[in-house]
Structures are given as C-alpha cells and as structure tokens.
Amino acid sequence: MNQNEAVQQNSKPRRVSKKKGKALNNPPVKRLLLPTVVYLIIATQIPFIVTIYYSFQEWNLMRPDKGVTFTWFTNFIKALSAPSFYEVAMNTLILTTSVLMICFVCGLLLALLMNRNFVGKGIVRTMFISPFFVMPTVSGIIWKTMVYNPSFGFSAYFANVFGVAPYDWFTQNPLLAVIFIISWMWIPFFMLILLAGLQSLPMELIEAAQLDGANRLQQFFNVTIPHLVRYIEVVVLLGLMFILQVFGEIYVTTSGGPGFASTNLSFLVYRTGFQSWDVGGASAIGVITVILTIVMMLLMFKVLRRMFKEEQA
C-alpha cells in the first residue's frame, strides 16, 4: 500500500491552516475514538472480567440456599475432568475445521465457475449468496424439516426412491448434519469474497504466464492462488470468527444431542449456564472457551499483523 495513504500520512502535519487555530492543530482523535473504546470496554471487556471472577465461585442459581462461595479452581477442575468436555472440545474443532475446509474448497470452485461470462450472472450470484443472509435458526429449521425429516424430508424421499431405509441424520450423525447446514450458509460467503479476488486478478499476469507456456493448471497454482492469498486470509479470518461461535443452528436442530454428540463449546456454556443454572461452572467453561479462541486467534495473529503491516508499507 498505498500511495494514497502514504501521501495522507506525510501531509498530515501540513493540513493545519493557521487561521483556524487549535482545533485543526490537534485533530480530535481522542474525542472520535473515545466513545468506541469506552463502549467496547463496557460491553465486552468488563463482562469478560466478571466471567473470570465468577469462574472461581461456586454458585448455582437453582440452589439459592447454598449461596455463593469462593472455591479457587474447583470449577475448572470439574469442567476439565468431565469426559463430555473433551467430546465437546473435539466437536468444536471438527466442526470449525471441517466447515472452514468445505467452505474454502466449495467456495473456490463456485467462484471459479462464477468467474466466467454467461447469461444471467447477476441472478445466479444473488441465488448463491442468499443462504448467507438467512438467520441461523431458520436455516436450522429449514434443514431439519425439509431435508433431514425422516418421514417427509427430501432425504426420506430420496431414500424411498432408491429403496433404502431413511437415514435419521440427527440421531445417527448429528455433527455431520450440523456441518452441512453451516456449510450451506457459509459457502456463499466464501464464494463471494474469493470471486472478488479472482476478478481483481490482472489479465496481464495470466497472459504473461501463457507466454511462458504455463498450462491452465500451472497458471492456477502459480499465478491465481498466490494472488488470492490475501483474500483467502480475510475470508478464513471472518469465517473463523463466526463459525467458532455457531449456536442457533445447533439450538433448533439437535439441542446439542444426543448426549453431547453435537454440542460445541458455545452451546456447552449455554447448557451449563441456562439449563443447569450453574453460574460458576458455565463461567469456567466460558473462560476456557475464550482461552481456546485466543489460541486460535494467535495462530491467525501473524496473518492479521501482516495484513495491516503491508497496508502501511
């Protein structure tokens, strides 16, 4: 980046017109930024600190008689020694990585298909992107009823056509069923961003590669993919942010079950906090969730940093 910004930065001190005096000499950076900082601290940081505090308390809203007692790390020990926790952590990992991979591969393939000229491109793109705007609860309901329902869903219909027994998705493979729903919602988003990347690929690059005698496959891997890297980073980052926190789709389809088979960490916090009313336990799991998310984020940290760095360079 970015001549424009470079100019901006160099010219910043010069922007002062002496007549107007102080207001321009001291750009109102603080006044402009402060509301955001204060708001975000109140709405996100303070509640999280309170979560940490609660995670050291034994406190069940169903048992007001027992009161609130400080228990050190009991909640963490209890959470981490439950076998279900590892099942849930594993579910979260499987769910997130497989959805990201499915979305990336399918999104890229669709973007390649869309990066051609054909009649009705606008409408086709609109049709593709639509699932992304459907609210998670409704996507869950649509799939649960229309696709997976073992008596009148489409999967039952096709099972009937092919003469096999209908597959009860939510009892036999709940996690996979949820993965399909979330992929349906997020493939369009990946497609949209990656398509933007493909469309920004300069024609000269492809032509140069062709002159060098590269075949289609070589062009794709040596020219297209490197060009797409930044777009891939953005889309994976944004996808990760939302897919790690999937909640509504699980709530309406499986309620995390059977057992813990389709519970992810977000949903485990809900179950512990709002079904068992265990404030301490839910807070402890919440803290662990945040820590695991931060670990994921640190893995992406370098990527983010690099993005901002290069933007300034």
């Binding site: 930065q9 996100t44 977000s266 404030v279 799991i285 945040v290």
Partner: peptide, 29 residues
Amino acid sequence: MYRVKRRDDILFWIISTRFLPIAGVIIPL
C-alpha cells in the same frame, strides 16, 4: 484520516473484541 499513536494496536484490539465469544460474556451479562 489522522495520525493515531499505536494505530495498529488500537485497531487490532477493536477487531479482537468481535472475536470474543459470546460464551465468554453471557453469564455476567
């Protein structure tokens, strides 16, 4: 538009609040 000290850090912090899972704040809220 303005020169902001430690702009990258501020920006990163702002974005990171969006990463904070709702699960990590819902109980106190």
